[in-house]
């Protein structure tokens, strides 16, 4: 009796041939080998059942967020709750946009996240290039010391960081929110890994042609780093967009509030249950930009994130 089951290859799956042999079809009591068809079908059915359950994990709360934001206050406070809005309405969304300046906050978030993202890409590519392609004494020690900071929970340094930025006179300013995130170990680590794969011959050839190091980095190396740059860019954009603790600590003016702080304001207006659908509509507004960016860049992003785990 063999437990090996060969399933049909899927389109575009080059390793399918090897992988099919360890399949879910083999899970559970082993039916007689004389009936491999039934077993394959059963395994497949269980597989899809599992996938459906797994898909519900992210989908259900997102579904609930969306339909709740579309309910009228009357329907929203029904017990038990309705599973689909009877009369979907954009009313809560309009109220949310009217009650707090979401437009301004979206712009603020865009400035803050965009600025940090561009800065991190620049600092990480430059540092990653040196750590990968230049040689000097203590290079690797310095690199691993930097990598250690990747594991530092930001709350540990919140008090002195706040004090420093305030002493610099940067509290309650765009620059104060952004500057501490202009470089980080994750970006340098990611870029070093990817730049290591750039052939040395390419760089030497460029050097022999008299290209400056600056030109080599941006004209020859950078174009080869697209997946890494997308990964780092999306990661940083999402991180700074969602960062709550730091802007909460350093900003006082509503005019500078990023989306998360404005949403916090909307949330703390009232605990009244009939207003909760407005708050949910606000949550939807705050989530859409990062979700859209993620879904546009998802392929490269997921690959890049996966690589950091393997190579790390």
């Amino acid at each position: 009796m063999t437990t090996t089951i060969h399933l049909r290859n899927q389109r575009g799956d080059q390793r399918g041939d090897q992988r099919g042999r360890f399949s879910l079809g083999a899970i559970g009591d082993r039916p007689p080998a004389s009936n491999p068809h039934l077993r394959r079908r059963l395994g497949r059915a269980f597989g899809y059942l599992g996938l459906t359950v797994v898909a519900l994990i992210p989908l259900f709360p997102l579904y609930w967020l969306t339909i709740s934001a579309l309910k009228t206050p009357g329907e929203f406070s029904k017990i038990p709750p309705t599973w689909f809005p009877d009369t979907p309405t954009l009313g809560p969304l309009q109220t949310a946009l009217h009650d707090v300046p979401f437009g301004r906050s979206l712009l603020n978030s865009l400035i803050i996240s965009g600025g940090c993202t561009i800065a991190v890409i620049i600092t990480s590519v430059l540092a990653g290039y040196v750590f990968s392609k230049h040689h000097f004494r203590g290079r690797d020690l310095l690199f691993w010391l930097i990598v250690l900071t990747m594991f530092l929970p930001p709350i540990v340094t919140l008090v002195p960081l706040f004090t420093l930025v305030k002493t610099m006179g940067l509290d309650d300013s765009y620059l104060g929110v952004m500057l501490p995130w202009f470089a980080n170990a994750f970006g340098i680590f990611l870029m070093r890994q990817f730049i290591a794969d750039v052939p040395d011959e390419l760089i030497d050839a460029a050097r022999m042609d008299g290209a400056s190091e600056w030109r080599i980095v941006w004209r020859f190396v950078f174009p080869l780093l697209r997946p890494a740059v997308v990964t780092l860019g999306v990661f940083m954009f999402v991180y700074t967009w969602n960062n709550f603790l730091w802007p909460l600590s350093i900003l006082r003016s509503d005019a500078l509030y990023p989306v998360v702080l404005t949403l916090n304001r909307l949330m703390s207006y009232t605990m009244s249950f009939s207003y909760q659908n407005v708050v949910l509509a606000g949550a939807l507004v705050a989530s859409l930009p990062t979700l859209i960016i993620f879904f546009i860049a998802q392929r490269a992003f997921v690959e890049g994130i996966a690589n950091t785990g393997i190579k790390g």
Binding site: P58, P61, L62, N242, A283, S287
Partner: peptide, 17 residues
Amino acid sequence: TLLFATYVIPTIAIVIT
């Protein structure tokens, strides 16, 4: 991809949900 999408949503939006 869907599983990862939850990671990119601001925590405050998830808190509200």
